[in-house]
């Protein structure tokens, strides 16, 4: 959508390249190591800020990238299977404290959802870090029903 708009507005082709690898970090590294000529632009979530604190990154986002604009805001929501029987965050935290080892799913290690999950775990006083990391490596669509 952004690429199409820019192409029309500026009369030049904007090519969107979906880059996978290392949970999306390969794309960040590719842009960080590209020629600083304004023709290779990173469009990402705030994983560019959170991931280096969890995973090894081949570039330093602070020195190798320059922020230009914030395009949008992305909320992080907490969703559970209806059969879990919780209807509020307080009820969920109470259940998490009563059931150590609960897992959750995100779309990747080191992204903002993962960081939010770790923060929530700290609030809950849970101590199931390893299982949470393992769950985060699985696609949410397959791991969520198994909560």
């Amino acid at each position: 959508m952004i690429g199409e708009y820019l192409s029309r507005a500026l009369g030049q082709q904007f090519i969107v390249e979906n880059r996978s690898g290392a949970g999306g970090l390969a794309a960040i590294e590719a842009v960080g190591k590209s020629a600083p000529d304004g023709y290779t632009i990173l469009v990402t979530t705030d994983r560019v800020a959170s991931a280096p604190h969890v995973l090894k990154l081949g570039v330093n986002p602070v020195t190798d990238l320059s922020p230009v604009i914030q395009i949008s805001r992305q909320p992080v929501v907490l969703a559970v299977h209806p059969s879990l029987g919780v209807a509020s965050l307080a009820e969920f935290l109470a259940l998490a404290r009563a059931r150590p080892g609960m897992s959750y799913a995100t779309s990747g290690v080191g992204i903002h959802q993962h960081v939010a999950g770790e923060w929530l775990q700290k609030l809950a006083g849970s101590s199931s870090r390893s299982s949470l990391i393992a769950a985060a490596r699985r696609p949410p669509t397959t791991s969520l029903p198994g909560m």
């Binding site: 082709q13 880059r19 469009v43």
Partner: peptide, 10 residues
């Protein structure tokens, strides 16, 4: 042409 690089999770 300008490249817009978008990270995706495999």
């Amino acid at each position: 042409p300008v490249r817009l690089i978008v990270p995706v999770v495999a």
